[in-house]
Design a protein around this nucleic acid. Structure first.
Lengths: 174, 174
DNA sequence: CTGTAATTACGGTATAAACTGAAATTTCAC
DNA sequence: GTGAAATTTCAGTTTATACCGTAATTACAG
């Protein structure tokens, strides 16, 4: 199997962007490869095309499967697993966002809650200023967190509408 | 100067989270230090507290200033620059989001636009499937990009409302 | 102009993470 | 059960980048 120029460009770019999204380059490349590939690919093929260690492909695929953006299918007369990426773009990015929130927001929220609780208890604290900053930061994060949870609980169509509506939202806010 | 236990915890946590936000640990620590500190700090003080090279503090401060989340003030009878963090949490995170969009979305959007244009021109392309995937991905990204731009252009109060309204938005979408 | 204090530039080092490759383990057709 | 083929594990290597420390430069008070 050989990649077209376009596919190659996309795979390489995805890899580079992956690192900025907190995803390792190879994992992102594999995802791109599967997403832009017409048919599901076996691990060997991925190894060939991307020129990375077989074991690494295996582990990366596992990671992508854990997230749910890649799945396994089987081909008649072929014992090997074949992998395909989720083709639904919205869902793919929602999964990615969830993951990022889990890693980038939730831990901070936890620390801020702990800290705020601790400071509220401790009456002797002379450091009123820091307390205020913690409370403000916590308030902000709680808002964002609650908002995300609510949006996430909406039926998907509503969520899509929320984005595609765009400018019209500003009118609703009057 | 000495940090309270709480401040130390916050600074260390911020540093760790920073790396997940695509910000170097020290830069994030400096930001936390300034944000949670009652008064503006000179660079020397930061060097002392965080135990990092003076030059590194200088460069990190410059980066934070470039983003606009840290500013300089002067203290009477003191020649040195004193630094303070923006105390407005919303604005701080909006700046951060802008930066991330610039680094994580815009380049991909560019590539996808180029690719889609290229594929649209090339009638001979046998790879119809990849073309579809590119178009879908591009469509999605354009929506998100346009939405972000519009929200960003709203008066800030509306933007805050958008988040704090939360669940009520779902009713508006009926 | 002079001396002090700060920033900037930059080659070198340390560290964390990705990646390799071989060995151990599991899976599954027969 | 047996053997082939895949996956998983893991110690070792490579690579990227944060960070250091010196040296050069700039800024400015006196």
């Amino acid at each position: 199997m050989k990649l077209t120029t376009v596919q190659q460009k996309l795979v390489l770019h995805w890899g580079e962007m992956g690192t900025r999204w907190g995803i390792s380059r190879t994992v992102a490349q594999i995802h791109a490869l599967l997403y832009f590939s017409p048919e599901p690919l076996p691990a060997d093929e991925i190894t060939d095309v991307l020129q990375v260690a077989r074991s690494h492909v295996s582990n990366s695929l596992k990671e992508l499967q854990t997230w749910g953006v890649v799945g396994v299918v089987h081909v008649m007369g072929d014992r090997r697993d074949h992998f395909q990426a989720l083709k639904d773009v919205w869902q793919t990015f929602e999964i990615l966002l969830d993951e990022r929130k889990r890693r980038e927001i939730d831990p901070t929220l936890k620390i801020l809650r702990e800290t705020a609780a601790m400071m509220a208890e401790d009456k002797t604290t002379a450091d009123v200023f820091t307390k205020e900053r913690v409370d403000e930061m916590l308030g902000f994060m709680e808002s964002v967190d609650a908002w995300y949870g609510e949006v996430r609980r909406l039926p998907r169509a509503a969520r899509v509408k929320l984005v595609t509506l765009g400018a019209k939202l500003s009118q609703l806010l009057r």
